[in-house]
Design a protein around this nucleic acid. Structure first.
Lengths: 170, 170
DNA sequence: TGTTGATTGACAGTATACTGACGATCTAGG
DNA sequence: CCTAGATCGTCAGTATACTGTCAATCAACA
């Protein structure tokens, strides 16, 4: 009993693969972000970190990584760069010598206010080629897919419970 | 006439942003790919390059970058690694001393045949959490979006015309 | 034919990502 | 109190990405 012959190898094995499309779209998204925000010297990752530190002042690096689902090893250098630009500062935690608490500086809060309109333009541009109804459909499906695949990634998102042990009562 | 107060800054500025979702999904996709293909020591990028070299034997690095929309600078090191693993070889082009032509080796062709089922499992797993109809919707919208944003990225995809000057008649 | 301009591959510098390991530190259990 | 295990930040090593630059080479035109 002969086995089915394997299908021929074409570029469709690349072009039609979800992984390839996600990679492409991510690169396009970064490109648009950097273009709209070139006046600010902030990367998408640095922007995300600033938002999270603004929302959770005094967070530490490990919890920050859980709140935005960024890799903890990488986050170290991201934090260094934000500190070098004087957008955040790190203070030792009095009750735990391992931890360094993160706070926005005045510059950090200021640049965050200023960059937000540019970021919103960038986010809108990414989806602009689609019809409005399709944008909503795509975003809805993406949110679902990312959420349902959450545990697969190295750093699953832990939005709420990541902060329970942060001294706000738990 | 007072201007509208800016809306409060919340984590939604991150979680609901298309760029964030694309980044997350790309990371999840790579994670699934590496998990399914861990027996093969090939990254997604290296896999894409192998497929393209298989489909277009004798392609050079610049055209390869156009065919898979990978950055040309990065592609140099990708090619080096594939060559170090003995999956491809580079031959100087007789008619143009600048160019090095890329070919699969026997090992390269063999590993490509072997890895394809694992890659297909990976691609299927990425979309698995969605209902079948939703998978199609998402892929359709993504293909559209990547295509319509093609010119935005640093290396736009040039699938067909990239090969017109490759000596097949032009 | 000789110079200009484009192309090719390579490189340096920066920024994400992930793996795996490490010392310092904290927490729980005995 | 003291040790076993967990956690925190950090680091080394590898792999993508992008910007900008460079020498070698080629193509086109005056």
């Amino acid at each position: 009993m002969p086995s089915k012959p394997p299908p021929p190898i074409t570029m469709d094995a690349v072009y039609a693969a979800p992984g390839y499309l996600f990679r492409r779209m991510q690169q396009i998204a970064v490109s648009i972000f950097m273009e709209e925000c070139k006046a600010f010297d902030l990367t998408p990752v640095q922007y995300g970190a600033l938002i999270a530190i603004h929302t959770h002042p005094g967070i530490d690096a490990t919890r920050l990584s859980a709140v935005i689902a960024f890799d903890r090893s990488t986050l170290g250098s991201v934090i260094e760069r934000l500190q070098a630009k004087d957008y955040i500062e790190r203070k030792p935690a009095p009750e735990d010598k391992r931890i360094k608490l993160l706070y926005l500086t005045k510059s950090g809060a200021a640049i965050l206010r200023e960059i937000i309109p540019a970021v919103e333009r960038a986010q809108a541009r990414m989806l602009e080629p689609l019809k409005p109804a399709d944008r909503k459909t795509l975003m809805g499906l993406l949110v679902q897919l990312v959420d349902l695949n959450n545990e697969v990634s190295r750093v699953p998102l832990r939005a709420e419970d990541a902060l329970e042990h942060l001294g706000k009562g738990g």
